[in-house]
Structures are given as C-alpha cells and as structure tokens.
Design a protein around this nucleic acid. Sequence first.
DNA 1: TCCAAAAAATGAACATTGTTCACTATTTGA
DNA 2: TCAAATAGTGAACAATGTTCATTTTTTGGA
Lengths: 198, 198
Amino acid sequence: MAGIQKAKREEAARKLLEAAVACVAEQGIDALHVREIARRAGYSVGSVYKYYADLDEILIAVNTITLGRIKAVVGEAIIGKDDPMDRLKALARAYHSFALENRKLWEALFGHRLPDDRPIPEIHLKENAALLAVIGQSLLELSPKMSAEQLEARKRTCFAAVHGLVLINLENRFVGLSGEVFMREMDFLVERLATATV
Amino acid sequence: MAGIQKAKREEAARKLLEAAVACVAEQGIDALHVREIARRAGYSVGSVYKYYADLDEILIAVNTITLGRIKAVVGEAIIGKDDPMDRLKALARAYHSFALENRKLWEALFGHRLPDDRPIPEIHLKENAALLAVIGQSLLELSPKMSAEQLEARKRTCFAAVHGLVLINLENRFVGLSGEVFMREMDFLVERLATATV
DNA sequence: TCCAAAAAATGAACATTGTTCACTATTTGA
DNA sequence: TCAAATAGTGAACAATGTTCATTTTTTGGA
C-alpha cells in the first residue's frame, strides 16, 4: 500500500498551484488569497503552507508556469521561418499576443514585487536567458560581425524595447490608435533595431 | 479669527501627503500603510480618511508628485539644446537618471495597480501627454513630412521603448553589463527610432 | 493482523492592516 | 456667548497572511 503519501503530496501541490493559476488568470495578482486557493483546491488553509512557504512562493510558481507558456508560444512562432528579420518580428508579435490573451498572468509575471532581500528565482533568470538567446541568434545572423559583448547588450535592448511597447499598449496608453497601427510600430521598432549598420 | 480651519485643512493634507511620499521613497509602495502615514504626520488613523478616500487615492497623489518631478527634470534636460536628436537623447538620459535616483517612487508610479473599475486619473493622462508632446516636437523636426497620425504613434513608440529599457535596467536584467554600455544602447535606440527614413 | 511512529490535514487563533464611525475638541459666525 | 459646523480621535470591525496544537491517515515492522 506504500505510495499513497507520495501521490497525495503530488496531487495536493498540483491542485493548489492550479487553483492559484486560475485565481491570478481570472482576477489578477491582487486577488490571490490563501483562503481562496485552499477553497478552490479543496484543502484547508493550513495545508497550503505545507506545500508553499508563503504567498510569494506560490506566485513565483505561477509565474514559472507563465514563463513556460511564453517560451512555448514564442518557440512556435519562429518555426519554419528562415529569414532572421521575419523571425524577430514574429517573436515580438507572439509576445504581444500572449500578453493580450493572458493579460492577468502577464501582469502578474512582471508586476510581482518581491521583498528587496529576496532574489529573482534562478529558474526565472534561466528562462529569461533562453528568450534572450533566441533573439540573439537572429541578431547575429543579421550582424555577423557584432562582438559578443555588443550582442549581449543588443539582445537585451531589443527585448526591453519590445517589452516596453507591449507594456504601454496593455496599459491603454496607445489609446486612440488602432491595433493595426500598433502592429506597424512594432515591426518598425524591430526593423530599426535589428538592421545591421551598413 | 476666520481662517484657522482652512489653514489646518491645508496643513494636514500637505503633511499627510509628505509623509506618504517619504514612506514610498524610503521603503516602497508595499510599505505604504495608513498607520505609518498617520504616525509620521502626527495625526490619528481616522484623520487620514478625512483627507483621502483610501490608500489608492493617497498613492495617486504621491504619483502625481512624482510625475511633476519627472516633468521638471525632463524639461531641464533639453534646455539650450538646438539639435532635436540631442534633445531626444537627453530626454532618455534624464528619464533614466530620475528612475535610478528615485527608484522607489518611480516603481510606485508604474507599479501601482488600480482596481479594474478605477480609471487612470485625468491628471496622470495629462502629464503623460505633455511628456509625449515634448518627444513629438523633436520627432517632427527630424521628420517634417510625417503625418499627424504617424507622429502620434511614433512618439508613443519612442517613449515606450525607452521606458522598457529603463525598466529592464532597473530590474537588473542588464546584469553584467556596465552602465557605460547601457548608455550607449539608449543612444543607439533613440538614434535608430528617431532618424528619418531617407 | 496490529500498532506505534511518521506524515498529511485541519481549523482555531494571532498579528497586521484598511476602513468605519460614534464621540470629543475646536472653530465659526451671529 | 453659544449653537452649529468642522477637525480630530481611537476603538472596533473585517479581511487576510501565517502559525501551531490537534486530529486523521498512512507506513513499515513485529
């Protein structure tokens, strides 16, 4: 009969995390409460703390899932695209689409403020680096002579700029402008940043 | 003897707001508590609510002050600069400097999540538009033939991209790269976005 | 099969915090 | 001088994160 405990542990951790993801996706980061997670998952308040140290840790787990989804979406977006500029534009569009379609989860990912003494989790840094690597690959094809240090900086610049556009767009600060215009601006941004100097 | 009440009202509102600004500047948005504000300003908890409807309203007032400071800093940065490209680079640098030197206040400005049903305050939209106008001015000098609609979109793009760089830089995601390299990237970004198509 | 130790699960209790409100103190204008 | 208006208070309440003593379930060996 051995194995029940292990199964219970895994099921509880999974159910609690799923409940947390649902909370955030539906109502946003500020509506993520321990009692609501416990209720949705069918456990008591105390049980939550047997699996996660605190709410921050739960949110980190939620954000890890979101990062994974972004990675998947972004990976699919560049499949079969030979031209590096096309790939970069597709990356930006996929990133923007994900943010639009998973607004609350995306906001939670970038809006979660950890205490000053708490470092950004290793896994998040790793996923972030993977995304930068995909960008770097295309950039290097476009500018083969670029130094390693330049490339490191440039891929961060490209990511940050696109991220900024998506962020401001989500906050409705592009108000009055159609989605079509926004898309053109994204393409313009990518093209300008990624084109090699002649 | 009439006038004591008015003076008291103004003093209380000012002291409470100053206390709130200090709280945020020192410890960040998550450390902004009604009891702490009241204590610092020398009032009771209840008094806070005679001047501000809730914490959100206090934070909006704090952010209004921050926006004013950004406007001032940015305004000074372009004084005496004739070349529009120089002005845009100076704008970006000033924006970045302010964020670095007023980290917690800057984070509070862009990290404050209002409830979904609460609109962004009018004054913030107005200040934001003023900042965009300054950008638009220089952009138009560089590309006089740009249409009004294009200009509207493009100034948002420029702001958003610079904002993204500053944001990612503040989150230490440019880790390993010197401040010098970052500055060069900012200049590169502005130059690429603002240069007119030949 | 039975049972004591280990693990899982519970929910009451506590501390913190935003918010309200009945009450007291001060100011006003006549 | 005084009643109404305004300013100010702090106890009380509700919501929420977190802890922990207690109960229930599972385990592995006698």
